[in-house]
Write a protein that binds this DNA or RNA. Sequence first.
RNA 1: GGGCGAUUGGCUCAGUGGUAGAGCGCCUCGUUCACACCGAGGAGGUCACUGGUUCGAACCCAGUAUCGCCCACCA
Length: 886
Amino acid sequence: MTDLTSRPDAPTSAPARQVPDKVTVDGLEGRWDGAWTAAGAYSFDRSKERAQVYSIDTPPPTVSGSLHVGHVFSYTHTDVVARYRRMRGYEVFYPMGWDDNGLPTERRVQNYYGVRCDPSLPYDPDFTPPHQGTDGKAVKAGDQVPVSRRNFIELCERLSAEDEQQFEHLWRRLGLSVDWSMTYQTIGSTARAVSQRAFLRNLERGEAYQAEAPGLWDVTFQTAVAQAELEARDYPGAFHKVAFHRPDGEQVVIETTRPELLPACVALIAHPDDERYQHLFGTTVTSPLFGVELPVLAHPAAEPDKGAGIAMCCTFGDLTDVQWWRELRLPTRSVVGRDGRVLRDTPEWIASEDGRALYGEIAGKTTFSAREALVAALRESGDLLGEPVATQRKANFYEKGDKPLEIVTSRQWYIRNGGRDEDLRTALLGRGQELGFHPDFMRVRYDNWVGGLNGDWLVSRQRFFGVPFPVWYPLDEAGEPRYDAPITPDEAALPIDPTSDVPAGYTADQRGVPGGFVADPDVMDTWATSSLTPQIVCGWLDDPDLFARTFPMDLRPQGQDIIRTWLFSTVVRAHLENGSLPWTDAAISGWILDPDRKKMSKSKGNVVTPLGLLEEHGSDAVRYWAASARLGTDAAFEVGQMKIGRRLAIKVLNASKFVLSFGDPAEPVLTDPALVTETLDRAMLAGLAEVVATATAALESYDHTRALETTETFFWTFCDDYLELVKDRAYGAGAAAGDVPAATASARAALGIALDTLLRLFAPVLPFATEEVWSWWREGSVHRAPWPTAEPLRTAAGDADPGVVAGAGAALAALRKVKSEAKVSMRTPIEHAVLAVPPALRPAVEVALDDVRSAGRATGTLDLAEADGDAVVARDARLGEAVARS
RNA sequence: GGGCGAUUGGCUCAGUGGUAGAGCGCCUCGUUCACACCGAGGAGGUCACUGGUUCGAACCCAGUAUCGCCCACCA
């Protein structure tokens, strides 16, 4: 992990302050990224107190994957917030992490370097991987060289470093205002130490515990799976009617989709009120084929209308079985192993010779083959009634797996999350209430998830790569681990790897011998590390000073799909460890949908590379597209929207160039509010004041879309109407050379003040174009300039009515329309016209009449009359008549 | 089965009680003294459907349909 210290502040560099002849948005990204880095524009100043800091818990992208359009989309949302807050005067704590922990990285490192992790091996400091860069061509599992966990982690960090450079390049090009001196890796030593320390403290307080219990198990990855990683999928199956037998020969027929679990059956169960089975409760039946005597029991979880209404309870076919097994205190008769195959040893509870022979035939088979074999046997014995009926059932899958999960008994670590503890659940629901969700309705997902938890958080995984549990167990005289007496390391020694490090008081040669010790073999779930990102970035481990300035954080940006995982687990950890929320607000981004309204996916072949997008349209344009979509709302991938953004950025450059042509930016001609005397100019500033107020309020409530929309709408009116209206006046047309009439000075100052304000309003969304213009006439970076406030504008505007601009604009529009409908040039002079104006607009038009005249090229007479309706009507003797609404 | 969100002109989306909006696309015209990555103007919608509340509903209520997602459902 890179050191989290920030660079000292340096003044931003100031390129030559002059307006270029030709402007372009192309190439701004490289220039300004370089300048920002050189100037330390986004360096975090850690001398600021917590109240002055805005800290962001950025999602660390998975480096072994690739960034896609969705990342660009959501990270832009966050950057808009960061830039806004920075301009509001906050010191923004905005680090970037790289997620290189977990299965995707494990796989990639295996394939890339041709190695696999074997924690039993010692660390080899001189290890050189057999392959390198075999991208696309995976090294086959058999050819992979086993290496120690430490070597594996080193390779992971090495490979990640290459990916990180590419990612950083993209993020810089996109204009993320991250402090690039502050990055972390989720498998880095800080992250490992934080994960281990947090775990040890959970353990100390009794929040972490281990238990031997039946749990969901993926037979492909051979690891336990947590509730949050489940995915219910359709899975083809078949109902089999199977007859059990009473001593008197009567058949009891059940239906099952898993006949291969027949040898694991421990009871038949029906609902206590089910009339059909009353006479069976308390009696026994024997299972077909295996002849095992089984009780018939009553339990309310049995549903009379499912299948035959009476179920065979096996250890374990599903979670209901687990419930029955637990509540009815049934024996454990597992037959499916961790590899998904039927256990080799014939179980002792199968007594009959035929049964034992049959079991021998299915031993070692996959559940699929075992099912076929048993169905054949049932058919032969006559215990299969009718033929199996195909059905589409829902089965639980590990989200990364492709085989249904089995339930096996294993020893696992858990962290309490309210799933078994009402008080904790209530407290965590309370945290959800405290947290500001944006949009607010996303809170429901949190509530649903927390309310529906049915067990504690399973944090151990039977993988080799990951953050190891910092725990050893003493071995007794017989060499059996004493799980009830775990040995833990000193916090100062973290991170440790118990498979290579030796606990205090032991020597290395005592590993694995009776009376010695043994390492906990498991690693933590990746969420067990990811849930600590606030603690990792804020220096919880070893930088209490930084921690005090940044924690609890302000914002967690993330996707809606991981509210139940990342968001919730982070809340759990902070609640347990810090007694607070990890952040005050969560910004939830929506999905990017392709034109078919489907979630963008690689398989659709419509994946667009983000860098290509940025190169084609320009970063400001792509950011504009992203910023146009509200938080929590799915957005279409819309190239058209990017083109609009590009047009806006270009317009900003051109309009700025124009405004800045009216005076030396160093002089107060473009900045002094006292010069703004004309009513139209003051009205424009009054309107701008409203825009500032609206945009600010919107951004305060994480509604960047409204802020952008409000600003943009004003800007286009500013360009199309106001700028055109005051153009001639600003030029000083008609005045003697060297003489600047007050009306001219008024227009120029108003234009300059508006430009200054608009640039700052646009800066969070269009960081490159606005910075470019800022450099033409201002010191420093626009991104460190203060966010505009409405008050000075209101003061400059005085009592001017912002509606004046609209009124004058309507008058101008009417004159334009006359020309447009007459199909003549806009420069065609209007020689003799009448403007019929509604009474409400009359004062506005009167006050701006000279500007309307010059903008409309009304060189002759232009008389005012009263209009009947609420629209302005222009009548020209030569060109005709046109109606324009304001 | 429960929940959340969505449904507005060809497209992407604003619009939470008072006579339907924007941009894009389209059509017409114009222009190069900030901007052709330009400007002006225009056409285009019974606001998914059915009821209800209200003087008045895109908006509130009830229900229906379609789409997306989350949760539950594995005998």
